[in-house]
Amino acid sequence: MKRLGAILFQIGAYGLFCALVYYWSVNPGYHYLQPHEAEIRVAFKHAAQLKEPCRQRTREELARLPPNMRSAKECSRERSPVIVKLLLDGTFLTRKTFPPPGLHGDGSAFIYAKFSVPAGAHHLEIRMDDSLRQPGFEVSEARTLTLDPGQLLVIAHDVERQGFVFH
């Protein structure tokens, strides 16, 4: 009787252990998006304009430099921060500033933001300001598109086209 009890106890213990293993290996379900939602991610790297304009060196300045370093212009290395605005159906989803990385602030900024939005037809507008020297947003693009439930839309900047691409 005692032995039978022990066997039942062991079966119960192994069963409970496996139940725990199984349950937490897949449950509870994690709802990343609601069934009627889609996701927009803005993701790209961008080397912004230099913060200060380049300066023409004077003749005397050039003469003072070693011959191999006599470039006509002197430019500071630091770049402007990148400001990105994203509007969905006329309202702001975000307005975010991405500083240039690096010790001298001369790296390409990494622009990254994500949003879940209701699926369906939307008017999307993205604007980017990458120069402190020029007022306003230099690059912008607007699209009307329909997002399916569960769709992932990625918006990136295309340097060659000087505009945005919507994947």
Partner: peptide, 19 residues
Amino acid sequence: PGLAPTTLHLDWFYLNIYP
């Protein structure tokens, strides 16, 4: 890459940091 997940059956033993 064109899909965002809706419901994921996470392994909570290992992937609990993601939510």
